[in-house]
Design a protein around this nucleic acid. Structure first.
Length: 562
RNA sequence: UGGGGAGUCGUCCAAUGGCAGGACGGUAGACUCUGGAUCUGCUUAUAGGGGUUCGAAUCCUCUCUCCCCAGCCA
């Protein structure tokens, strides 16, 4: 795309970069960065940013750094940097030897701050947080100058040095940029550059007790790394004048900041605060709960990196606030797994079926296709016998209109096996529910084809009772009930979908699934895509439902009920 | 009522003065040993008013709506 001059770049950012290259800015280099703060797990919204930054580097034959924005030791932990590195790699991106930390630059940042003090562009301020808020003014009223604003460079240098030396208490003083307390842009009202924080840092230990703020650290870090295009989300648009101010006053290399709209997803929460709340309050089983929109959760759910990348390509990049329908994400994983996932038969809610005219001791090994979308994936043998299980949903004693499956007197096909006809139903005396079916089979339909060419309207999946394996299957649905959980509602937990997780413990699966490795993905025919959960072990199979198959019958039923 | 952004099908993204297009969703059908997949058809949009122009989603203008900003968070 970037190589094809006749085609328009895919989004407005690539368009800007294309123009910059043409104008020979930054020697026509392209160098981006993905700058997470290690204070939480990455989620699908970060994936958009990762795909954008690393994708641009790939498209323009440039580079993309991974840089941890670790300027707040009170919130950041190594656990998070490890998970973030793993997640970026899993998504398929590589930063080679360009793994950086803002904390790598603490000394340089300090020296640049000294430079600004000497230039009369920064000062040490003794205002308390409360006072500073008062002096800042409001959205409609200008602020007023701090009484400490006109300290001499000498005094500021002395004070700043002593801040670093640990002479003052946490929070007692700050270093501020001297800009304009009456600016309409509140970020320009003498923003704090450094605060005193007597806290150990996950990388620098107790070397420092003053830490730089984002606005100051970020632009200088970008500058040090020779970043050309510093891509961030819309809420930083107001900060761009400050980004530019620092680099201008410092007279150092000056990248260009570009903002785009962050991802919102329907039926999903993506705010870090809410995600933490879900984990802490036990609404989910952890950061990697398969219902979580975290990369870790999505991975455990069975999504592939290809599907995520494809999703990020399809949603596009723009400046307009938007909410992507989660159906698109689901489409992407189905599309990918449809091509890749081996098919297998599994019965989630078993109904016992005895085939009366099938020989007691006979066991046949029937051929089944592993993936009709990809014949190179071959075939396998599936055992068939007199007693099998089918899905409870596949039988109705009184079939409604449009129900094609098994019913008394009706003939259906068992996939890859035989045509069977239901001749009897055993019921639970109390509930009246069918507990066992009796059927007859037509020996001439072996393999699933009828020599006389008669048609059946349904093909059912099944497993042999004796040969099948027991499995636990966890069915997942959207975590949030409503399409777009509003940002502002007092308690978003009221919108949690109570049916987001259902655990089925007596499922039966094909014997071939014995010992399936954690993470392996399958299509359970007619049901959906499932993957082996790490909770599996020897003799214990646990599956997560990644996504259902499109289900026309479910849709008919649903619309019929209304 | 300060400053910064944004308004195009239900949703997301295109169209850069010249036939408003694609994807997802929805819907109807074809096909099918998965009610899957695939294929085909249909569906619906330029926030509003005024102006410039042969021609406006695009340029000008007024209005409306929505989002972000008052952390010693990022």
């Amino acid at each position: 795309m970037a190589d094809n001059e006749t085609e328009r770049p895919a989004d407005f950012i690539r368009e800007i970069i294309t123009e910059d290259i043409a104008a020979k800015k930054y020697e026509s280099r392209v160098h981006t960065r993905f700058p997470p703060e290690p204070n939480g797990y990455l989620h699908i919204g970060h994936a958009k940013s990762i795909c954008l930054n690393f994708g641009i580097a790939r498209d323009f034959r440039g580079l993309c750094n991974l840089r941890f924005d670790d300027t707040n030791p009170t919130k950041e932990e190594v656990e998070y940097v490890d998970s973030i590195k793993g997640d970026v790699r899993w998504l398929g991106f590589d930063w080679d030897d360009r793994l950086f930390y803002a904390s790598d630059y603490f000394e340089k940042l300090y020296q640049h701050a000294v430079q600004l003090i000497e230039k009369g562009k920064a000062y040490v301020c003794d205002l308390t947080p409360e006072q500073m808020r008062e002096y800042r003014g409001t959205l409609t009223e200008p602020g007023s100058n701090s009484p400490y604003r006109d300290r001499s460079a000498e005094e500021n240098l002395d004070l700043f040095g002593r801040m670093r030396a640990g002479e003052f208490e946490t929070g007692s003083r700050t270093l501020r940029a001297k800009i304009d307390m009456s600016s309409g842009n509140i970020n320009m009202r003498d923003p704090v550059m450094y605060r005193i924080l007597k806290a150990g840092h996950h990388r620098t230990g107790d070397t420092w007790c003053i830490y730089p703020m984002y606005d100051y650290a970020h632009c200088v870090s970008d500058s040090i790394e020779g970043i050309t295009h510093s891509i961030c989300t819309l809420e930083f648009e107001d900060h761009r004048p400050l980004y530019d101010w620092f680099l201008e006053e410092l007279g150092i290399y000056h990248p260009r900041q570009i903002e785009f709209a962050r991802l919102n997803l329907s039926n999903t929460v993506l705010s870090k605060r809410k995600l933490i709340q879900l984990v802490r309050d036990g609404h989910v089983a952890g950061w990697d709960d398969p219902r979580m929109p975290t990369i870790a959760g999505i991975r455990r759910r069975g999504y592939t990196p290809e599907a995520i990348r494809n999703f990020c390509d399809r949603i596009g990049v723009a400046k307009r606030d938007s909410t992507v329908d989660v159906a698109l994400l689901e489409y992407c994983i189905r599309e990918d797994l449809n091509k890749k996932a081996p098919r297998v038969m599994a019965v989630l809610r078993p109904l016992r079926v005895v085939i009366d005219n099938y020989p007691e001791d006979l066991i046949e090994e029937l051929d089944a296709v592993n993936n009709p979308e990809d014949m190179s994936m071959g075939t396998r043998k599936v055992p068939f016998s007199r007693v099998i299980y089918i899905e409870q949903d596949d039988f109705r004693e009184e079939p409604p209109k449009g129900f094609f499956r098994l019913a008394p007197g009706r003939e259906v096909r068992l996939r890859y096996a035989y045509y069977i006809t239901c001749v009897g139903v055993l019921r639970d005396d109390r509930t009246g529910e069918a507990t066992e079916l009796h059927c007859t089979y037509d020996p001439k339909t072996r393999g699933g084809d009828s020599p006389d060419g008669r048609k059946v309207k349904a093909t059912l999946h099944w497993v042999s009772a004796e040969h099948s394996l027991e499995a636990e299957v966890r069915l997942y649905d959207h975590l949030m009930k409503e399409a777009g959980p509003g940002q502002q509602e007092a308690d978003f937990r009221a919108l949690l979908n109570p049916g987001s997780r259902e655990v089925l413990r007596s499922c039966r699966v094909e014997p071939g699934l014995a010992g399936a490795a954690a993470g392996s993905r399958y299509q359970f025919e007619r049901l959906g895509y499932f993957c082996v959960d790490p909770d599996s072990g020897p003799g214990r199979l646990v599956f997560n439902r990644t996504a259902t198959l499109r289900d026309t019958w479910a849709k008919v039923q649903k619309s019929g009920k209304k």
